[in-house]
């Protein structure tokens, strides 16, 4: 406390390492292009000019999993596509997060049948679920901001895997 009072107007800020790392991670999180179906169009609309996602640091969508941190599963995942989804998730480097966008990715949506995986959390672990069919671009941005809140609360001890 005393240190900050003395250094406050010298342009120096003190914080914990966790806060600094989480701040850096949320400010420039690059999503991976994983638009499958109708939700992909709303994701593209969220990236375009009217509801701009680059305000939140997601300036570009990386098609390559090796260069992205966030996978937004937008659309329905069929049984043929599920192994491909898992493979791409495995190819992403740590730290990585997953947003299940839309009803089909969260729980199977309208399609309760043999061909669609009932919720993408049967294939990859999901951090945030965004509901809607398709969710409005504002709903997706709210989901992204919720993810940022979650990331800001992460501690290093949780991320260490045995």
């Amino acid at each position: 406390m005393g240190v900050e009072q003395k250094l406050g107007n010298m342009g120096i800020v003190t914080t914990t390492l966790e806060t600094a790392v989480n701040w850096a991670r949320t400010n420039a999180m690059w999503p991976m292009l994983f638009g499958l179906a109708c939700c992909a169009i709303e994701m593209m609309a969220a990236q375009a000019a009217d509801y701009d996602m680059s305000r939140f640091g997601m300036e570009l969508m990386r098609p390559s999993p090796r260069q992205s941190d966030l996978m937004i599963v937008a659309g329905r995942v069929s049984r043929k596509m599920a192994p491909v989804l898992r493979r791409l998730y495995d190819q992403m480097p740590e730290p990585k997060w997953v947003i299940a966008m839309g009803d089909c990715a969260s729980c199977g949506g309208v399609f309760n049948n043999y061909a669609i995986v009932q919720g993408v959390d049967e294939v990859v672990p999901v951090d945030v679920y965004v509901a809607g069919c398709p969710p409005r671009p504002e709903a997706l941005i709210h989901g992204v901001v919720t993810l940022f809140e979650k990331v800001k609360g992460e501690k290093f001890t949780d991320l260490v895997k045995a």
Binding site: N112, D121, E122, V124, P125
Partner: peptide, 25 residues
């Protein structure tokens, strides 16, 4: 068969939760 899966309402929430194959990591 259609492959219909039972929807998860609030009265059967826990029993379907135990059956569903979630991925942990």
């Amino acid at each position: 068969p259609l492959g219909y899966e039972e929807p998860q309402f609030s009265f059967n929430f826990e029993e379907i939760d135990l059956r569903k194959p979630y991925v942990k990591e």
